Computed example of a mutant assay.
Amino acid sequence: MVATGTLVALIATSCSSTGADRAEPAAATGRAKITEALNDLISIDHLPGAQIVITDHGQAWTATAGVGNVEQGAPFPDNARVRIASNTKTFVATVMLQLVAEDKVELDAPVERYLPDVVHGPGIDGNRITIRNLLQHTSGIPEYAAEFGVPPKPGQLETHDEQVRWGITDMTEVVRNALTAPADFAPGAQWAYSNTNYALAGIIIEKVTASSLGAEITHRIIEPLGLSDTYYPNPDETAIRGPHPLGYSEIDGKLIDYTDQNVTSAGAAGAMVSTGADLNRFFTALLDGTLLPPAQLAAMKTTVPLGVPDSDAAYGLGLLYHRLPCGKDSWGHGGDIDGFETRGGATTDGRSVTVITNQVPGTPEPTQHINQLVDTALCPTT
């Protein structure tokens, strides 16, 4: 699905920097090349709007293209808050690994220890599935999004069901229904993305801590890092707090404002709101050891291949690995939810990038272009 010819895209790109511009953090990457690629997402891929945030050792540079509001022609706000979808999984995995470091959870313990008599179904046995399997998507547990009629691609939590859009989802019931489907494979036999893994991880965190997942993410990650534009929505929230672009979905050939929605159906798998700058700060802090002790960070970065032809992509514990064209290692996640797509990565030398679009592309090519843009921005040229 692509935007129709009635959408008039603004091809002019606006740029801004923080840190008084004195550090010129993105200058070495060739800003003209980056802004040209950002504009191509509008003029060639026909997305409404896009924003890139590049952070280098704490200094951030932002560029935008297209519109954040189709009707008014307004651009993305500089510090745009958006739904970050499956990037939420990295936050959840980080909290779980902090609990492992605190000896409150054992990474290779069976899920049955924490959720007795819950994880069972055709070929599904909570005594054989570990916490590691959940975080790494090697459990074989089937995808719960199928409950909403939309089997997603990795990172995607899209559904156009109006009841799901506005209603509060009982995730315990959703998981219970998902577990009536047969296992996709035996635990540890292969990798397959399933949002149900993280729904279960969220339930386990809440049981172990006797607190809500949102509260744990807030006091363990958001507050210590000063992520002032990041939050886990309350169950009854439908709007995005603070400055944000509108997010669009193409439904029956029409571009629809899908910004407001209840994201309890995404939950631990993809409910959070953040900005490009905050995401960059989070992934940088994660990789430099601010959030996890060395043993848990090493476990998080221990990967299994995705099995994608001609790809080196591999998945750790809520963390996606990719080898950049310039030879550096990139770590991140990414995510899609109705209205927004986010892609990005961070390197261990203090550089991080997030690209946001306010529509999930309907074909693979725009996302490929977004990923290429991330790679370009993460590989500065001399």
Rank of each mutant, 00 (worst) to 15 (best):
I256R: 12
R128K: 14
F76I: 02
L200S: 06
I204V: 13
Y321R: 12
I54E: 01
N127L: 14
A60F: 00
A210N: 14
L227D: 03
L7T: 11
G350D: 04
T259W: 01
R351P: 01
P364F: 08
A269Y: 03
W61S: 00
V208F: 06
A277W: 04
V105W: 02
P224V: 09
D117Q: 12
T218C: 05
D21Q: 08
G49E: 03
G214S: 14
G289T: 05
A23E: 12
A146D: 15
K33N: 12
P48W: 07
A268R: 06
G202Q: 02
I370G: 06
T130G: 10
V67H: 00
T347D: 06
T180M: 12
R113V: 13
N371P: 06
S14H: 15
I42Q: 12
T354R: 03
G214V: 07
T196G: 07
G5L: 13
E206W: 06
N371M: 12
D312M: 09
S194L: 12
I337V: 14
D288E: 08
N69G: 08
P224W: 13
L107Q: 10
D338F: 02
A298P: 10
V174L: 04
A295I: 11
S228M: 10
D45E: 14
T381P: 05
V70A: 04
Y231I: 01
A85K: 02
L378C: 06
V355R: 00
L297Q: 11
L317T: 01
A266R: 03
G345D: 07
I84Q: 00
S139G: 08
Y321E: 09
V308G: 05
L373K: 04
I222W: 03
E143G: 03
V8P: 06
I337H: 11
N127S: 15
L292V: 04
V355K: 00
L107S: 07
G58C: 10
E147Q: 15
A28K: 14
R165G: 00
P116L: 12
